[in-house]
Amino acid sequence: MGFFDKGHEKESPIGNLRAHIGTFMYFVKVGKSKFKHKGRVGEIFADMDNTQYLFQQATSGTMYDMKKKLDYTLWDAATHKYTEDIQQLKDELLKAVDEGEESGVFEEEKKEKEIEEKKKEEKEKKEEEEKTGDWKAHIKGQMAEAEEKARREAEEKEKEAETPAAEAEYESLTEEDCRELWRIIQGLEREYKEMNSIADDWFSIHGKKTGCMAALAAMTLLPLGVVYGLYQLL
C-alpha cells in the first residue's frame, strides 16, 4: 500500500487519516510552487514539504498490519511542526495585507487591472471595426501592433537583465497572492482539523503507544529545531 493511498479511506481510521494527509500535502505543494519566489512564504511551504516524512513515519504501521498503527511521539512532533508553520503563514499573510494597504500597492494593482481591461476592450472593438473596414488598413494595424509588442518585450527583457538577482528572487505579495494564500491556508486548516480529529479518536481507543526504533530513526533526519521540540516532549 502506498503512502496517501485514498483507496483505503473507508477501510480503516488510519487509511482515512492518510487520505487527509495526502490532501493536506497537496495544498502544501501548491503553495510551494505558487510562492516559490515570494520570500518567507515560499520558504515556509518548502520546509513544510521537506518534513512530510514526519507524517509518513507516524502512519507507517507495522510489518504485520499497515492499517492500524499510529506512533504518538512522531504524530505529536508532526502536529507541533505544522501548527507552527500554519501560524507563520497566517502571520506573513497579515503582514503582507497591512503593508499593501499602507503603501497603496493594492490600490495601484487595481488601477492597473482596470487599465488592462479597458485596453483589451478597445482592442476587441478595434478588431471588430477592422473586420468590416479596409483590409489594407487591417493588415497595417496588425503589423504596427506586432512591432509595438516586440518593442515592449525587448524593454521588459532589458529591465529584467538590469534587476539585481536578490530583487528578482524575492517578490512582494500582490493582492491576488494574498487571496490565493488565504485560500490555501483555509484548505490546510480544514484538512488539519480532520487529521487531528481522527488521530485523537484513535489514541483514545488504542492509547498513546510509540515505536522507539521508528522514533530514533526519524530523529536522525529531523532538523535541529524539531529534535529539540521532541526532547522537550519526552
Rank of each mutant, 00 (worst) to 15 (best):
E112R: 08
M1L: 09
K159P: 00
A154Q: 12
E121Q: 15
E117S: 06
K69E: 01
W75R: 00
Y72S: 07
E145S: 11
D71Q: 06
G187N: 05
D49S: 12
E155K: 12
Y26R: 11
E122M: 10
F55R: 05
E147V: 09
K159W: 12
M195E: 01
A137E: 15
E175P: 00
F45K: 05
T23C: 07
A199W: 09
R40F: 05
I44H: 09
M219A: 01
Q87P: 06
T62G: 07
K123A: 13
E114N: 05
L230Y: 07
A150D: 12
E129T: 11
D76C: 06
G15N: 12
D177M: 07
K140S: 14
S197G: 01
K90L: 14
G100A: 04
K193S: 05
L230M: 00
V226S: 03
Y170G: 12
K123Q: 07
G2R: 14
L17M: 06
F106H: 02
E153N: 11
L216T: 08
R183A: 05
K136V: 13
K119Y: 13
E107P: 08
R179T: 11
D200M: 07
A199M: 06
E108G: 04
K38A: 09
R151F: 12
T59Y: 02
P164R: 03
Q56P: 04
F55V: 00
D98G: 03
W135V: 15
A137D: 15
E194P: 03
K36P: 02
D134L: 08
E153P: 09
I21Y: 15
A217T: 04
I139C: 04
E99T: 03
D177Q: 01
A146Q: 15
E180A: 11
E127I: 10
M25N: 08
K136H: 08
I115M: 13
G7D: 04
Q57Y: 07
T73Q: 03
E130W: 14
Y72A: 00
N196D: 02
Q56E: 06
N50S: 04
E117C: 03
G211Q: 11
R18P: 12
K126Y: 15
D47M: 02
K32G: 09
S172R: 02
K119N: 14
M219Y: 00
M143W: 09
G22K: 14
P164V: 02
A46V: 01
K6P: 15
V97M: 04
A58F: 01
E92C: 07
Y170L: 13
G207M: 01
D91C: 04
F27I: 11
T79V: 01
S12F: 13
G141S: 06
H20R: 15
A19D: 09
L54G: 07
E169F: 04
E147G: 14
E43F: 04
R18F: 12
T73K: 02
K131Q: 12
L94H: 12
H20P: 10
E194N: 03
E175N: 02
E117V: 06
K159L: 14
A217C: 00
E176F: 05
G141D: 07
K159M: 11
Y64G: 08
L188I: 04
K208F: 07
E109D: 08
S33L: 00
T73G: 03
I44A: 01
